[in-house]
Design a protein around this nucleic acid. Sequence first.
DNA 1: GACTTTATTGGCTTAAAGCCAATAATATTT
DNA 2: AAATATTATTGGCTTTAAGCCAATAAAGTC
Lengths: 242, 242
Amino acid sequence: MTEETERQYLNQYNIKDYESPLYSVDIAIFTLHNGQLKVLLVERAAHPFKHSRALPGGFVDLHIDADIEATARRKLVAKTGVDAPLLEQVTTVGNASRDPRGWSVTTLYMALIPYAPTADFVDTVSEAIWCPMEELKELSLAFDHQLLIELARERLKNKTAYSVLPLHVLERPFTLSQLQHAFELLMGKSLEKKSFRRRILNAELLHQVGEGVPEGGKGRPAGLYEPSAGSERHLFVRVFGD
Amino acid sequence: MTEETERQYLNQYNIKDYESPLYSVDIAIFTLHNGQLKVLLVERAAHPFKHSRALPGGFVDLHIDADIEATARRKLVAKTGVDAPLLEQVTTVGNASRDPRGWSVTTLYMALIPYAPTADFVDTVSEAIWCPMEELKELSLAFDHQLLIELARERLKNKTAYSVLPLHVLERPFTLSQLQHAFELLMGKSLEKKSFRRRILNAELLHQVGEGVPEGGKGRPAGLYEPSAGSERHLFVRVFGD
DNA sequence: GACTTTATTGGCTTAAAGCCAATAATATTT
DNA sequence: AAATATTATTGGCTTTAAGCCAATAAAGTC
Protein backbone atom coordinates (compact mmCIF):
# COMPACT_ATOMS: atom_id res chain seq x y z
CA MET A 1 0.00 0.00 0.00
CA THR A 2 2.97 2.26 0.48
CA GLU A 3 3.74 1.37 -3.07
CA GLU A 4 0.29 2.47 -4.04
CA THR A 5 0.29 5.83 -2.35
CA GLU A 6 3.71 6.53 -3.74
CA ARG A 7 2.26 5.98 -7.14
CA GLN A 8 -0.54 8.35 -6.50
CA TYR A 9 1.94 10.90 -5.29
CA LEU A 10 4.02 10.59 -8.41
CA ASN A 11 0.93 10.73 -10.51
CA GLN A 12 0.38 14.14 -9.09
CA TYR A 13 3.15 15.30 -11.33
CA ASN A 14 2.07 13.08 -14.18
CA ILE A 15 5.13 10.95 -13.73
CA LYS A 16 4.81 7.28 -14.35
CA ASP A 17 7.15 5.28 -12.23
CA TYR A 18 5.50 2.06 -13.30
CA GLU A 19 4.34 0.53 -16.48
CA SER A 20 0.76 0.95 -17.54
CA PRO A 21 -1.08 -1.49 -19.75
CA LEU A 22 -1.63 -1.05 -23.46
CA TYR A 23 -5.09 0.28 -24.09
CA SER A 24 -7.04 -0.29 -27.28
CA VAL A 25 -10.53 -0.44 -28.73
CA ASP A 26 -11.99 -3.24 -30.86
CA ILE A 27 -15.22 -3.29 -32.82
CA ALA A 28 -17.38 -6.22 -33.82
CA ILE A 29 -19.56 -5.23 -36.74
CA PHE A 30 -22.34 -7.59 -37.63
CA THR A 31 -24.57 -7.73 -40.62
CA LEU A 32 -27.20 -9.97 -42.16
CA HIS A 33 -26.57 -11.25 -45.65
CA ASN A 34 -27.96 -14.19 -47.60
CA GLY A 35 -29.66 -15.52 -44.55
CA GLN A 36 -26.44 -15.56 -42.56
CA LEU A 37 -25.09 -13.54 -39.71
CA LYS A 38 -21.65 -12.21 -40.58
CA VAL A 39 -18.92 -10.36 -38.78
CA LEU A 40 -16.40 -7.99 -40.31
CA LEU A 41 -12.75 -9.04 -40.07
CA VAL A 42 -9.59 -7.40 -41.29
CA GLU A 43 -6.14 -8.75 -41.92
CA ARG A 44 -3.46 -7.46 -39.63
CA ALA A 45 -0.66 -5.61 -41.36
CA ALA A 46 1.74 -5.63 -38.44
CA HIS A 47 3.09 -7.83 -35.73
CA PRO A 48 2.00 -9.42 -33.56
CA PHE A 49 -0.29 -11.80 -35.44
CA LYS A 50 0.77 -10.29 -38.74
CA HIS A 51 -1.46 -11.59 -41.55
CA SER A 52 -3.93 -13.06 -39.10
CA ARG A 53 -7.57 -12.12 -39.20
CA ALA A 54 -8.71 -9.79 -36.46
CA LEU A 55 -11.45 -7.42 -35.45
CA PRO A 56 -10.95 -3.85 -36.60
CA GLY A 57 -9.67 -1.68 -33.81
CA GLY A 58 -6.69 0.26 -32.59
CA PHE A 59 -5.24 2.68 -30.15
CA VAL A 60 -6.54 5.96 -28.86
CA ASP A 61 -5.16 9.03 -30.52
CA LEU A 62 -4.88 11.49 -27.68
CA HIS A 63 -4.83 14.45 -29.99
CA ILE A 64 -7.80 13.50 -32.13
CA ASP A 65 -10.26 11.51 -30.07
CA ALA A 66 -12.57 13.16 -27.58
CA ASP A 67 -13.49 9.87 -25.93
CA ILE A 68 -13.19 6.15 -26.46
CA GLU A 69 -16.41 5.95 -28.41
CA ALA A 70 -14.90 8.48 -30.78
CA THR A 71 -11.89 6.23 -31.08
CA ALA A 72 -14.13 3.32 -31.94
CA ARG A 73 -16.12 5.35 -34.42
CA ARG A 74 -12.97 6.70 -36.04
CA LYS A 75 -11.66 3.19 -36.49
CA LEU A 76 -15.01 2.03 -37.74
CA VAL A 77 -15.20 4.76 -40.34
CA ALA A 78 -11.63 4.17 -41.44
CA LYS A 79 -12.17 0.49 -41.97
CA THR A 80 -15.73 0.32 -43.19
CA GLY A 81 -16.66 3.75 -44.47
CA VAL A 82 -19.80 3.55 -42.40
CA ASP A 83 -20.60 5.77 -39.47
CA ALA A 84 -22.76 3.47 -37.42
CA PRO A 85 -25.28 5.61 -35.55
CA LEU A 86 -25.51 2.99 -32.85
CA LEU A 87 -22.30 1.85 -31.27
CA GLU A 88 -22.82 -0.25 -28.22
CA GLN A 89 -20.14 -0.84 -25.66
CA VAL A 90 -20.05 -4.53 -24.83
CA THR A 91 -17.32 -5.04 -22.28
CA THR A 92 -13.70 -4.43 -21.45
CA VAL A 93 -11.18 -7.24 -21.30
CA GLY A 94 -7.77 -6.76 -19.77
CA ASN A 95 -5.16 -9.21 -18.63
CA ALA A 96 -1.50 -10.13 -18.80
CA SER A 97 -1.81 -12.80 -21.43
CA ARG A 98 -4.01 -11.60 -24.24
CA ASP A 99 -1.26 -9.69 -26.02
CA PRO A 100 2.27 -11.06 -26.43
CA ARG A 101 3.59 -7.53 -26.04
CA GLY A 102 2.41 -7.51 -22.46
CA TRP A 103 -0.43 -6.40 -20.21
CA SER A 104 -3.21 -5.20 -22.44
CA VAL A 105 -6.71 -3.81 -22.06
CA THR A 106 -9.30 -3.49 -24.78
CA THR A 107 -12.81 -2.09 -24.81
CA LEU A 108 -15.12 -3.90 -27.17
CA TYR A 109 -17.84 -2.14 -29.13
CA MET A 110 -20.52 -3.69 -31.26
CA ALA A 111 -22.70 -2.56 -34.13
CA LEU A 112 -25.26 -4.07 -36.44
CA ILE A 113 -25.32 -2.40 -39.83
CA PRO A 114 -27.01 -2.95 -43.18
CA TYR A 115 -25.05 -5.12 -45.54
CA ALA A 116 -22.65 -3.55 -48.00
CA PRO A 117 -19.89 -5.27 -49.94
CA THR A 118 -16.54 -4.73 -48.25
CA ALA A 119 -14.62 -3.92 -51.40
CA ASP A 120 -16.58 -0.73 -51.81
CA PHE A 121 -15.62 0.97 -48.66
CA VAL A 122 -12.49 -0.49 -47.20
CA ASP A 123 -9.47 1.58 -47.96
CA THR A 124 -6.34 1.12 -45.96
CA VAL A 125 -6.71 -2.43 -44.80
CA SER A 126 -5.25 -4.93 -47.22
CA GLU A 127 -8.28 -7.14 -47.08
CA ALA A 128 -11.54 -7.03 -45.20
CA ILE A 129 -14.11 -9.77 -45.28
CA TRP A 130 -17.56 -10.49 -44.00
CA CYS A 131 -17.05 -13.79 -42.27
CA PRO A 132 -20.14 -15.94 -41.68
CA MET A 133 -20.38 -16.77 -38.02
CA GLU A 134 -20.61 -20.43 -38.87
CA GLU A 135 -17.18 -20.44 -40.45
CA LEU A 136 -15.61 -18.57 -37.62
CA LYS A 137 -14.61 -21.54 -35.54
CA GLU A 138 -12.29 -22.74 -38.27
CA LEU A 139 -10.33 -19.51 -38.38
CA SER A 140 -7.40 -18.68 -36.17
CA LEU A 141 -7.89 -15.11 -35.09
CA ALA A 142 -5.44 -12.70 -33.55
CA PHE A 143 -5.31 -12.14 -29.79
CA ASP A 144 -8.45 -13.25 -27.96
CA HIS A 145 -10.70 -12.04 -30.73
CA GLN A 146 -12.56 -15.34 -30.89
CA LEU A 147 -13.64 -14.66 -27.34
CA LEU A 148 -14.46 -11.03 -28.07
CA ILE A 149 -16.72 -12.06 -30.92
CA GLU A 150 -18.51 -14.53 -28.67
CA LEU A 151 -19.12 -11.79 -26.16
CA ALA A 152 -20.41 -9.42 -28.81
CA ARG A 153 -22.60 -12.20 -30.19
CA GLU A 154 -24.18 -12.76 -26.79
CA ARG A 155 -24.88 -9.07 -26.43
CA LEU A 156 -26.43 -8.98 -29.85
CA LYS A 157 -28.81 -11.78 -28.86
CA ASN A 158 -29.89 -10.02 -25.71
CA LYS A 159 -30.07 -6.64 -27.35
CA THR A 160 -32.30 -7.95 -30.09
CA ALA A 161 -34.70 -9.37 -27.55
CA TYR A 162 -35.55 -5.96 -26.18
CA SER A 163 -34.96 -3.74 -29.13
CA VAL A 164 -35.97 -3.38 -32.66
CA LEU A 165 -32.56 -3.31 -34.24
CA PRO A 166 -33.38 -5.67 -37.10
CA LEU A 167 -35.83 -3.14 -38.53
CA HIS A 168 -32.90 -1.09 -39.63
CA VAL A 169 -30.72 -3.70 -41.26
CA LEU A 170 -33.25 -5.17 -43.67
CA GLU A 171 -33.68 -4.02 -47.24
CA ARG A 172 -36.87 -2.06 -47.56
CA PRO A 173 -39.60 -2.87 -47.92
CA PHE A 174 -39.74 -6.21 -46.17
CA THR A 175 -42.36 -8.78 -45.28
CA LEU A 176 -43.19 -9.84 -41.76
CA SER A 177 -41.74 -13.26 -42.52
CA GLN A 178 -38.44 -11.72 -43.51
CA LEU A 179 -38.45 -9.66 -40.38
CA GLN A 180 -39.17 -12.68 -38.26
CA HIS A 181 -36.33 -14.60 -39.88
CA ALA A 182 -34.00 -11.72 -39.11
CA PHE A 183 -35.06 -11.75 -35.47
CA GLU A 184 -34.62 -15.50 -35.32
CA LEU A 185 -31.17 -15.33 -36.80
CA LEU A 186 -30.05 -12.62 -34.43
CA MET A 187 -31.61 -14.19 -31.38
CA GLY A 188 -30.49 -17.67 -32.31
CA LYS A 189 -33.87 -19.24 -31.66
CA SER A 190 -37.17 -19.70 -33.40
CA LEU A 191 -40.17 -17.56 -32.55
CA GLU A 192 -43.87 -18.24 -32.57
CA LYS A 193 -45.44 -16.74 -35.67
CA LYS A 194 -48.64 -15.46 -34.14
CA SER A 195 -46.95 -13.92 -31.13
CA PHE A 196 -44.38 -12.27 -33.30
CA ARG A 197 -46.97 -10.59 -35.45
CA ARG A 198 -49.03 -9.46 -32.52
CA ARG A 199 -46.06 -7.83 -30.88
CA ILE A 200 -44.68 -6.14 -33.93
CA LEU A 201 -47.97 -4.84 -35.23
CA ASN A 202 -49.24 -3.68 -31.84
CA ALA A 203 -45.99 -1.78 -31.29
CA GLU A 204 -46.92 0.39 -34.28
CA LEU A 205 -43.37 0.64 -35.46
CA LEU A 206 -44.26 -0.33 -38.98
CA HIS A 207 -46.60 0.86 -41.64
CA GLN A 208 -47.71 -1.15 -44.59
CA VAL A 209 -46.44 0.25 -47.84
CA GLY A 210 -47.16 -2.38 -50.48
CA GLU A 211 -50.36 -4.22 -51.11
CA GLY A 212 -48.66 -7.59 -51.24
CA VAL A 213 -46.05 -8.48 -53.79
CA PRO A 214 -44.13 -11.69 -53.37
CA GLU A 215 -40.39 -11.16 -53.32
CA GLY A 216 -38.61 -14.18 -54.62
CA GLY A 217 -40.83 -17.14 -54.86
CA LYS A 218 -44.00 -18.95 -54.38
CA GLY A 219 -46.92 -18.79 -52.06
CA ARG A 220 -49.39 -16.11 -51.21
CA PRO A 221 -48.09 -12.56 -51.58
CA ALA A 222 -47.18 -10.91 -48.31
CA GLY A 223 -47.79 -7.43 -47.07
CA LEU A 224 -44.80 -5.15 -47.44
CA TYR A 225 -43.73 -2.97 -44.54
CA GLU A 226 -41.31 -0.25 -43.67
CA PRO A 227 -40.29 1.21 -40.34
CA SER A 228 -42.48 4.18 -39.62
CA ALA A 229 -40.97 7.59 -39.08
CA GLY A 230 -39.64 7.93 -35.59
CA SER A 231 -39.22 4.22 -34.99
CA GLU A 232 -35.57 4.94 -34.27
CA ARG A 233 -36.73 6.51 -31.06
CA HIS A 234 -38.30 3.30 -29.96
CA LEU A 235 -35.26 1.14 -30.26
CA PHE A 236 -35.69 -0.27 -26.83
CA VAL A 237 -39.17 -1.56 -26.96
CA ARG A 238 -39.14 -5.05 -25.57
CA VAL A 239 -40.09 -7.23 -28.47
CA PHE A 240 -39.89 -10.70 -27.05
CA GLY A 241 -39.51 -12.60 -23.88
CA ASP A 242 -36.48 -14.65 -22.95
CA MET B 1 -3.31 5.96 -41.56
CA THR B 2 0.38 5.86 -42.32
CA GLU B 3 0.63 7.16 -38.83
CA GLU B 4 -1.40 4.24 -37.63
CA THR B 5 0.57 1.52 -39.37
CA GLU B 6 3.78 3.08 -38.18
CA ARG B 7 2.48 2.76 -34.70
CA GLN B 8 1.65 -0.85 -35.17
CA TYR B 9 5.10 -1.38 -36.56
CA LEU B 10 6.73 0.24 -33.57
CA ASN B 11 4.49 -1.68 -31.28
CA GLN B 12 6.01 -4.78 -32.71
CA TYR B 13 9.04 -3.91 -30.66
CA ASN B 14 6.99 -2.70 -27.77
CA ILE B 15 8.06 0.84 -28.40
CA LYS B 16 5.61 3.57 -27.73
CA ASP B 17 6.11 6.55 -29.95
CA TYR B 18 2.94 8.14 -28.72
CA GLU B 19 1.23 8.76 -25.45
CA SER B 20 -1.27 6.29 -24.17
CA PRO B 21 -4.10 7.15 -21.79
CA LEU B 22 -4.03 6.54 -18.07
CA TYR B 23 -5.90 3.38 -17.25
CA SER B 24 -7.59 2.72 -13.92
CA VAL B 25 -10.34 0.76 -12.27
CA ASP B 26 -13.09 2.13 -10.01
CA ILE B 27 -15.55 0.27 -7.83
CA ALA B 28 -19.00 1.30 -6.64
CA ILE B 29 -19.92 -0.74 -3.59
CA PHE B 30 -23.53 -0.55 -2.49
CA THR B 31 -25.21 -1.72 0.66
CA LEU B 32 -28.56 -1.49 2.38
CA HIS B 33 -28.63 0.02 5.85
CA ASN B 34 -31.42 1.56 7.89
CA GLY B 35 -33.75 1.50 4.96
CA GLN B 36 -31.35 3.42 2.79
CA LEU B 37 -29.20 2.58 -0.16
CA LYS B 38 -25.63 3.63 0.47
CA VAL B 39 -22.43 3.77 -1.53
CA LEU B 40 -18.91 3.47 -0.18
CA LEU B 41 -16.68 6.51 -0.64
CA VAL B 42 -13.11 7.17 0.36
CA GLU B 43 -11.15 10.35 0.78
CA ARG B 44 -8.38 10.87 -1.72
CA ALA B 45 -4.95 11.16 -0.20
CA ALA B 46 -3.21 12.58 -3.25
CA HIS B 47 -3.64 15.08 -6.02
CA PRO B 48 -5.63 15.62 -8.07
CA PHE B 49 -8.76 16.14 -6.02
CA LYS B 50 -6.81 15.68 -2.80
CA HIS B 51 -9.19 15.44 0.17
CA SER B 52 -12.19 15.02 -2.09
CA ARG B 53 -14.49 12.07 -1.77
CA ALA B 54 -14.15 9.46 -4.47
CA LEU B 55 -14.93 5.89 -5.36
CA PRO B 56 -12.30 3.39 -4.31
CA GLY B 57 -10.11 2.39 -7.21
CA GLY B 58 -6.67 2.63 -8.67
CA PHE B 59 -4.19 1.52 -11.23
CA VAL B 60 -3.30 -1.89 -12.53
CA ASP B 61 -0.23 -3.47 -11.00
CA LEU B 62 1.30 -5.30 -13.94
CA HIS B 63 3.29 -7.55 -11.68
CA ILE B 64 0.50 -8.58 -9.35
CA ASP B 65 -2.80 -8.54 -11.20
CA ALA B 66 -3.76 -11.31 -13.57
CA ASP B 67 -6.58 -9.30 -15.08
CA ILE B 68 -8.60 -6.14 -14.51
CA GLU B 69 -11.14 -7.90 -12.34
CA ALA B 70 -8.25 -8.95 -10.12
CA THR B 71 -7.22 -5.32 -9.97
CA ALA B 72 -10.72 -4.36 -8.91
CA ARG B 73 -10.90 -7.14 -6.34
CA ARG B 74 -7.48 -6.23 -4.95
CA LYS B 75 -8.58 -2.64 -4.50
CA LEU B 76 -11.86 -3.72 -3.02
CA VAL B 77 -10.18 -5.95 -0.45
CA ALA B 78 -7.65 -3.28 0.41
CA LYS B 79 -10.30 -0.65 1.04
CA THR B 80 -13.14 -2.66 2.48
CA GLY B 81 -11.70 -5.93 3.75
CA VAL B 82 -14.43 -7.73 1.90
CA ASP B 83 -13.87 -10.03 -0.99
CA ALA B 84 -17.10 -9.59 -2.88
CA PRO B 85 -17.92 -12.83 -4.61
CA LEU B 86 -19.87 -10.97 -7.23
CA LEU B 87 -18.13 -8.16 -8.99
CA GLU B 88 -19.98 -6.88 -11.98
CA GLN B 89 -18.41 -4.86 -14.71
CA VAL B 90 -20.61 -1.88 -15.46
CA THR B 91 -18.93 0.11 -18.19
CA THR B 92 -15.75 1.81 -19.27
CA VAL B 93 -15.48 5.57 -19.52
CA GLY B 94 -12.57 7.24 -21.24
CA ASN B 95 -12.07 10.75 -22.50
CA ALA B 96 -9.73 13.69 -22.55
CA SER B 97 -11.42 15.68 -19.84
CA ARG B 98 -12.25 13.45 -16.91
CA ASP B 99 -8.80 13.63 -15.35
CA PRO B 100 -6.82 16.90 -15.15
CA ARG B 101 -3.65 14.89 -15.67
CA GLY B 102 -4.80 14.08 -19.19
CA TRP B 103 -6.53 11.44 -21.28
CA SER B 104 -7.84 8.84 -18.92
CA VAL B 105 -9.79 5.62 -19.10
CA THR B 106 -11.47 3.83 -16.23
CA THR B 107 -13.40 0.59 -16.02
CA LEU B 108 -16.19 0.67 -13.47
CA TYR B 109 -17.15 -2.33 -11.37
CA MET B 110 -20.09 -2.67 -9.02
CA ALA B 111 -20.95 -4.83 -6.03
CA LEU B 112 -23.75 -5.13 -3.52
CA ILE B 113 -22.58 -6.39 -0.17
CA PRO B 114 -24.06 -6.90 3.30
CA TYR B 115 -23.68 -3.91 5.56
CA ALA B 116 -20.68 -3.63 7.84
CA PRO B 117 -19.43 -0.53 9.62
CA THR B 118 -16.57 1.02 7.71
CA ALA B 119 -14.31 1.58 10.69
CA ASP B 120 -13.96 -2.14 11.15
CA PHE B 121 -12.34 -2.99 7.91
CA VAL B 122 -10.85 0.04 6.31
CA ASP B 123 -7.15 0.26 6.82
CA THR B 124 -5.08 2.47 4.62
CA VAL B 125 -7.60 5.04 3.60
CA SER B 126 -7.79 7.97 5.94
CA GLU B 127 -11.54 7.90 6.05
CA ALA B 128 -14.16 5.79 4.38
CA ILE B 129 -17.88 6.39 4.67
CA TRP B 130 -21.12 4.83 3.60
CA CYS B 131 -22.83 7.72 1.89
CA PRO B 132 -26.64 7.54 1.55
CA MET B 133 -27.55 7.94 -2.08
CA GLU B 134 -29.91 10.74 -1.18
CA GLU B 135 -27.11 12.86 0.20
CA LEU B 136 -24.88 12.25 -2.76
CA LYS B 137 -26.03 15.17 -4.85
CA GLU B 138 -24.76 17.62 -2.26
CA LEU B 139 -21.24 16.25 -2.32
CA SER B 140 -18.55 17.32 -4.71
CA LEU B 141 -16.84 14.16 -5.80
CA ALA B 142 -13.50 13.70 -7.53
CA PHE B 143 -13.28 13.24 -11.30
CA ASP B 144 -16.55 12.14 -12.91
CA HIS B 145 -17.43 9.90 -10.02
CA GLN B 146 -20.90 11.38 -9.71
CA LEU B 147 -21.57 10.10 -13.19
CA LEU B 148 -19.96 6.74 -12.48
CA ILE B 149 -22.20 6.26 -9.47
CA GLU B 150 -25.26 7.07 -11.56
CA LEU B 151 -24.21 4.46 -14.08
CA ALA B 152 -23.64 1.87 -11.39
CA ARG B 153 -26.98 2.74 -9.83
CA GLU B 154 -28.76 2.16 -13.10
CA ARG B 155 -27.07 -1.20 -13.50
CA LEU B 156 -28.06 -2.13 -9.98
CA LYS B 157 -31.70 -1.41 -10.78
CA ASN B 158 -31.66 -3.56 -13.87
CA LYS B 159 -29.64 -6.28 -12.26
CA THR B 160 -32.04 -6.53 -9.35
CA ALA B 161 -34.95 -6.99 -11.71
CA TYR B 162 -33.61 -10.23 -13.06
CA SER B 163 -31.63 -11.54 -10.17
CA VAL B 164 -32.03 -12.32 -6.57
CA LEU B 165 -29.17 -10.25 -5.23
CA PRO B 166 -31.09 -8.77 -2.30
CA LEU B 167 -31.41 -12.21 -0.71
CA HIS B 168 -27.79 -12.02 0.19
CA VAL B 169 -27.58 -8.57 1.68
CA LEU B 170 -30.33 -8.84 4.26
CA GLU B 171 -29.78 -9.89 7.84
CA ARG B 172 -31.10 -13.37 8.38
CA PRO B 173 -33.72 -14.37 8.95
CA PHE B 174 -35.96 -11.88 7.20
CA THR B 175 -39.65 -11.47 6.49
CA LEU B 176 -41.15 -11.29 3.05
CA SER B 177 -42.04 -7.67 3.68
CA GLN B 178 -38.46 -6.83 4.48
CA LEU B 179 -37.38 -8.60 1.35
CA GLN B 180 -39.91 -6.72 -0.71
CA HIS B 181 -38.76 -3.42 0.71
CA ALA B 182 -35.19 -4.31 -0.22
CA PHE B 183 -36.25 -5.06 -3.78
CA GLU B 184 -38.20 -1.84 -3.93
CA LEU B 185 -35.28 0.20 -2.67
CA LEU B 186 -32.88 -1.35 -5.12
CA MET B 187 -35.23 -1.16 -8.06
CA GLY B 188 -36.43 2.30 -7.20
CA LYS B 189 -40.10 1.45 -7.63
CA SER B 190 -42.89 -0.17 -5.70
CA LEU B 191 -43.98 -3.71 -6.35
CA GLU B 192 -47.32 -5.44 -6.08
CA LYS B 193 -47.46 -7.47 -2.90
CA LYS B 194 -49.29 -10.49 -4.20
CA SER B 195 -47.18 -10.80 -7.30
CA PHE B 196 -44.03 -10.46 -5.31
CA ARG B 197 -44.93 -13.28 -2.98
CA ARG B 198 -46.01 -15.55 -5.78
CA ARG B 199 -42.77 -15.09 -7.63
CA ILE B 200 -40.47 -15.45 -4.67
CA LEU B 201 -42.20 -18.44 -3.15
CA ASN B 202 -42.67 -20.26 -6.43
CA ALA B 203 -39.00 -19.82 -7.21
CA GLU B 204 -38.23 -21.96 -4.16
CA LEU B 205 -35.22 -19.93 -3.24
CA LEU B 206 -36.30 -19.57 0.35
CA HIS B 207 -37.28 -21.85 3.17
CA GLN B 208 -39.25 -20.80 6.19
CA VAL B 209 -37.21 -20.97 9.35
CA GLY B 210 -39.26 -19.22 12.02
CA GLU B 211 -42.83 -19.75 12.91
CA GLY B 212 -43.63 -16.10 12.90
CA VAL B 213 -41.99 -13.62 15.24
CA PRO B 214 -42.45 -9.93 14.69
CA GLU B 215 -39.19 -8.07 14.40
CA GLY B 216 -39.54 -4.53 15.60
CA GLY B 217 -43.08 -3.55 16.02
CA LYS B 218 -46.72 -4.04 15.73
CA GLY B 219 -49.02 -6.05 13.58
CA ARG B 220 -49.41 -9.71 12.89
CA PRO B 221 -46.18 -11.70 13.15
CA ALA B 222 -44.60 -12.60 9.84
CA GLY B 223 -43.01 -15.77 8.65
CA LEU B 224 -39.24 -15.74 8.82
CA TYR B 225 -37.22 -16.92 5.88
CA GLU B 226 -33.68 -17.65 4.83
CA PRO B 227 -32.19 -18.32 1.43
CA SER B 228 -32.13 -22.04 0.86
CA ALA B 229 -28.86 -23.79 0.20
CA GLY B 230 -27.83 -23.42 -3.39
CA SER B 231 -29.78 -20.26 -3.98
CA GLU B 232 -26.50 -18.60 -4.96
CA ARG B 233 -26.60 -20.69 -8.09
CA HIS B 234 -29.87 -19.14 -9.12
CA LEU B 235 -28.80 -15.56 -9.00
CA PHE B 236 -30.20 -14.85 -12.40
CA VAL B 237 -33.73 -15.94 -12.00
CA ARG B 238 -35.92 -13.23 -13.36
CA VAL B 239 -37.83 -11.95 -10.42
CA PHE B 240 -39.92 -9.17 -11.85
CA GLY B 241 -40.95 -7.56 -15.04
CA ASP B 242 -39.86 -4.14 -16.14
C1' DG C 1 -57.92 -28.21 -62.11
C1' DA C 2 -55.29 -30.44 -58.35
C1' DC C 3 -51.53 -29.71 -55.51
C1' DT C 4 -47.86 -27.00 -53.17
C1' DT C 5 -46.30 -23.15 -50.85
C1' DT C 6 -46.44 -19.18 -48.10
C1' DA C 7 -49.46 -15.56 -45.69
C1' DT C 8 -53.00 -14.24 -42.72
C1' DT C 9 -56.45 -14.78 -39.38
C1' DG C 10 -59.41 -16.88 -35.73
C1' DG C 11 -60.15 -19.18 -31.68
C1' DC C 12 -58.88 -21.38 -28.21
C1' DT C 13 -55.63 -22.78 -23.82
C1' DT C 14 -52.29 -21.52 -20.57
C1' DA C 15 -49.48 -18.60 -17.66
C1' DA C 16 -48.70 -14.76 -15.11
C1' DA C 17 -49.52 -10.12 -13.45
C1' DG C 18 -52.45 -6.70 -11.21
C1' DC C 19 -56.16 -5.45 -8.23
C1' DC C 20 -58.77 -5.48 -4.19
C1' DA C 21 -60.92 -7.12 -0.42
C1' DA C 22 -61.46 -10.65 3.32
C1' DT C 23 -59.43 -12.78 7.09
C1' DA C 24 -55.74 -13.37 10.75
C1' DA C 25 -52.78 -12.14 14.47
C1' DT C 26 -50.60 -9.13 16.98
C1' DA C 27 -49.95 -4.35 19.54
C1' DT C 28 -51.90 -0.01 21.17
C1' DT C 29 -55.47 2.88 22.74
C1' DT C 30 -59.63 3.95 25.11
C1' DA D 1 -61.84 -5.71 28.33
C1' DA D 2 -63.22 -3.93 24.21
C1' DA D 3 -62.28 -1.19 20.37
C1' DT D 4 -58.91 0.30 17.16
C1' DA D 5 -54.72 0.26 14.49
C1' DT D 6 -51.21 -2.19 12.16
C1' DT D 7 -49.10 -5.59 9.59
C1' DA D 8 -49.42 -10.40 7.36
C1' DT D 9 -51.54 -13.75 4.64
C1' DT D 10 -54.77 -15.59 1.51
C1' DG D 11 -58.56 -15.93 -1.92
C1' DG D 12 -60.73 -14.70 -5.95
C1' DC D 13 -61.29 -12.15 -9.65
C1' DT D 14 -59.87 -9.36 -14.04
C1' DT D 15 -56.57 -8.30 -17.41
C1' DT D 16 -52.82 -9.19 -20.39
C1' DA D 17 -49.94 -11.70 -23.18
C1' DA D 18 -47.96 -15.91 -24.88
C1' DG D 19 -48.38 -20.44 -27.10
C1' DC D 20 -50.70 -23.66 -30.01
C1' DC D 21 -53.04 -25.23 -33.91
C1' DA D 22 -55.98 -25.25 -37.47
C1' DA D 23 -58.82 -22.78 -41.04
C1' DT D 24 -58.83 -19.80 -44.76
C1' DA D 25 -56.51 -16.99 -48.57
C1' DA D 26 -53.71 -16.14 -52.56
C1' DA D 27 -50.46 -16.92 -55.19
C1' DG D 28 -47.45 -20.32 -57.63
C1' DT D 29 -46.28 -25.28 -60.18
C1' DC D 30 -47.47 -29.71 -62.03
